Amino acid sequence: MPSFVKSALAVLAVVSTLVSPPTPSAAETLRINGTGAGLVALRPLVAAFEKENRGVVVDMEKSLGSSAAIKALSRNALDLAVSGRPLKPAESAEGLVQQQWGRAPFAVLANRQVRVTGVSLNELAGMYGTSSARWPGGELVRVVLRPNEDVDTKLTRSMSPEMDRGMSAAQTRKDMLLGITDDEAFELVKKTEGAVAVMALSLPLSQPNAVAVLKLGGVQPSVANVASGKYRFVKEMHLVTRKDASSTVARFIKFLDSKKGRAIAAKHGVLVTGVK
């Protein structure tokens, strides 16, 4: 091959490397998990954040629950955990920090075949306290419980002294349904005739018309009613990170606290109270 041809080909090769688009670098992954009620509210927020941050991919698998996600975070298997409870002292001692995200209405959910629009707190306590309770349509009430140490159980007990006693009675019965996680409990309400449970509103909002959301004491559980003080039963949501959290984690948390982030969260069941 003539030398001038070799030279021309060499120059062409160099030029092609200069004008060719660079190979895209691998996207940064942000690993998030936690309570099911928090994750369903985060999903639309994640979609909006990824749209604005093309170099970031959020990995959010099936819910581990608050405690398991916090443990995974402490072992560097996650970058952020959304928790339905505050950190325990031992968890803080492992270098974890928490920020309050917001409050979700803690709502009474029933199987969609139940033909009532609301219950009173005393009526709800009676459903928990006896095995013979029936809905007005005749269906046997099937209470869906959570583990005794779960935050939802504690929140349900705190609704009133009667609910506390009703919960104690329900936990002694052998006919109770038990959902270990938010997702499991929600699925039990969906598929079980006469089922009832108290859970964060973000879950039914993520699957419209899957269950019935009941008024409690005549008040509809909603973010607006929580904000106004009309509805007083809430589940707090916390964001948990390591002390050495990356700038990407900080950017995501800042997005959650933005005007856009607050609006999306409110639409999906979380009143953002301020990331602080």
Rank of each mutant, 00 (worst) to 15 (best):
T130G: 05
R146I: 05
W135F: 13
S168K: 13
A133L: 03
N148Y: 09
E162Q: 15
R134W: 02
T130H: 04
G138N: 01
L155P: 01
E184R: 02
E149P: 11
R146N: 10
E149F: 08
G179C: 07
G138F: 00
L155K: 01
V151H: 06
R134L: 03
M163Y: 00
E139S: 13
T172D: 08
S168A: 13
E184Y: 02
R165T: 13
S158L: 09
S131T: 10
F186L: 13
T181M: 00
D150T: 00
E139Q: 15
L177C: 09
M163W: 00
E162V: 14
G179R: 03
G137N: 13
E149D: 15
V143R: 04
G138L: 02
D175W: 07
V143D: 00
E149A: 10
V141Y: 02
A169I: 07
P161I: 08
E139K: 03
S160L: 05
L177E: 13
G179M: 07
M167Y: 12
T156K: 05
K154E: 13
P147M: 01
L145T: 05
Q171R: 15
S131A: 06
L177D: 11
L177R: 08
W135E: 15
A133F: 04
V143Q: 00
N148I: 10
K174N: 11
G166K: 07
S131D: 06
